[in-house]
Amino acid sequence: MNHDNYDDNYIRSILNGVKSIAMVGASPVNVRPSYFAFKYLAQRGYDMIPVNPGHVGKSLLGKPFVASLSEIGRSVDMIDIFRNSSHIMPVVDEALELPTPPKVIWLQLGARDDAAAAKAEAAGIKVVMNRCPKIEYGRLSSEISWMGVNSRTLSSKRAPVPTQGMRLSLNRTSVGGGATSASDRAAKNKNELT
């Protein structure tokens, strides 16, 4: 898998396929990016589980925090990790130890660990790094276009009127896929420098 840029079909199949998402590093503080993403994905119908040992006893939008992946007590389709690049490997190791490992491990915007990704992929797990599922969902559904963002998709079909909690169609025609080539290049250069 080329982790510098992803084919839209890869991202689309993940977001269309997963139903439950455990978010490691979810924050109850409502200005943190993890809170934004958690809330958005819950509103789009995903079964969200907040994982953060610092907040056990509290809940996030009605979902109780659990301390670790093993304490979820059931299988999840995707693990979305809101941790810095240096804290990824232990989470991946823990995920691989689960009775039923996840189908997808997703590393948030800014996070990348190629060794951890290779380990997960060797176990048959799909990996996405340095992306935000909220942004990707918004982009592929074109909902993000409200913000003037280049969704890199086109459609000549009439979209349904969106209602609350509704899953949006992600099956628009992709143009080029993912981020722009200039921004991909900049991200790659940054990654090589660090």
Partner: peptide
Amino acid sequence: MTDRLPGFSTLAVHAGAQPDPTTGA
């Protein structure tokens, strides 16, 4: 569904626009 980058003229006509969800305009 393919990741084919359309040409400039296609983007000039289509990018960002889609039939209005409510009226079909």
